[in-house]
Amino acid sequence: MALANRYQKILLHTLIIAGVVIMLYPILWMLSSSLKPSELIFTDNSLWPKKVTMDHYIKGWAGISKTTFTTYYLNSITLVAIAIIGNVVSCSLAAYAFARLEFKAKKLMFGLMLMTMMIPLHVLVIPQYIMFNKLDWMNTILPIVVPKFFATEGFFVFLTVQFIRSLPRELDQAATVDGCGPFRIYTKVILPLIVPAIVTTTIFTFIWTWNDFFSQLLYLTGQEKLTVTLALRIFLDAMGESALGSLFAMSFLSIVPVFLMFMFFQRFIVEGIATSGIK
């Protein structure tokens, strides 16, 4: 549907840009407020601060009762890094078996995997909580990261299976002729070719684990174990609106890593959503 004339085109662009501004205004307002002296946050309405201060960032970073945001960021980064390794390794192994190997009950198991994707977390979380408590894993990251090493996020298995299926089988056959077994085919042929699927898995694991609140709220309780999201919530409860500038400063900082991931890996994210329909 090409547009009739230039005038219409300009109108359309204006409309779309106006939409973008309205949508992103709250985020810009948060950034701008975090840079304003406290007394100006609700009085100075312009997005461009009359006076810029880094105070909120310095005060905010100092955190609550002696633990600084350095600790919280290190905790979040560790959690995310281990989760990524777990998902990439376990999901690609399972995906290779589903996409390329022959075994009994393959269809049944594949169906089972799709079914596990549909079970709401809340149905599983209570027994899991009881189990992790029995294992004495409370207040550690184990309840969050260990399941990732067992391909529990079926979505990534599914995504990788689809990707492997699109690769020509002749590659595996050639490797078999050269005397490669399934393990060498997996490491030498398949893994190098599924890098885009691995990148997609990495990005989404990063974003989801970074933003995740529910499981971190359940399992991480000690002050020194808190992640960035949990620290923000404690910050809100402890300071309320009295330290709004710092609260905004730390909130804004916490979404920066996600923004950066998005900027650098946009293509993978947009394709990931468009082809598989995830969030």
Binding site: A97, F98, F103, M109, F149, P182
Partner: peptide, 12 residues
């Protein structure tokens, strides 16, 4: 194949 699937099977 079950070796490749082992993590997933245990996980499920």
């Amino acid at each position: 194949p079950y070796l490749f699937l082992a993590p997933w099977l245990i996980g499920v």
